[in-house]
Amino acid sequence: MPEDDQRPGGDTAPGRWREQRPGPDDALLTARAREGDEEAFEVLVRRHGPVLLNLATRMLGSPADAEDAVQDAFVSAWRRLPQFRGDAAFLTWMYRIVTNRCLNLLRSRRPTAELDATTEPRAPEHQASPVRAAESTAAVRDLSAALAGLSPEQRACWVLRELHGFGYGEIAEMLGISRQAVRGRVFRARRYLTEAMSAWR
C-alpha cells in the first residue's frame, strides 16, 4: 500500500485533492482574530464558508442543516479562538469542528442500529439531496443518495478523503481515531459505493 499519506492524484486529476489550501494569510488573520479582531474573523468566515458548507451538505444531505451546522461551528470557533494555539491551520481546525458537529447530528438522528454496509442503497432521497436536479446528472444525484446509505463515520472518512482531499493521517487526527480505522472506513465506504454505483458503468 502507498506509504505516503496524501492521496496521489497523479496527472489524471490535477488539483483534485485539495479544494483550497490555507495561505500564509490565514495564519495572520487567525492571530488577529485570536486577539479579538472580529474583522479578521469575518474574512476567515467568508473565505472558508463555501468549502465547509460543501462538506456539511455532503455529510448531512440537506443544505439547510448544513448552514446551521457551519454557522454553529464558526460561532464555537470564535469562542474557542483565545485557546487556539495555532498548532493546526485554521481551515483544518474548522474542518475538525464541522465534521464532528455533523457526526454528532447524524448519530443523534439515527438511533437505530448501524446499517449493514452490504444492503442496497435506500430509495434515492432526491429531495434531501444536496445536489440541485437542474444542475447535475442523475448519476451524481444517485451518488449523493448512496452516501446516505453509509454510516456517519464511513461517510465522514470517505467524503474527507475523496471529495476534500485529506490524507488518512489528517483524517485520523481530525476524528480522533487511528489511521488504520480511517483506512478501514474508507475501504468499506468505497466498497459500498462501487457496488451501489456499478449500474452507471
Binding site: A13, R16, E19, V131, S136, T137, A139, V140, L143, S144, E162, L163, R190, L193, T194, M197, S198, W200, R201
Partner: peptide, 10 residues
C-alpha cells in the same frame, strides 16, 4: 465509475 462520479460531483 465511482471515480468519474466523484469528478462530476467536484
Amino acid at each position: 465509475t465511482l471515480d468519474d462520479l466523484v469528478r462530476d460531483e467536484l
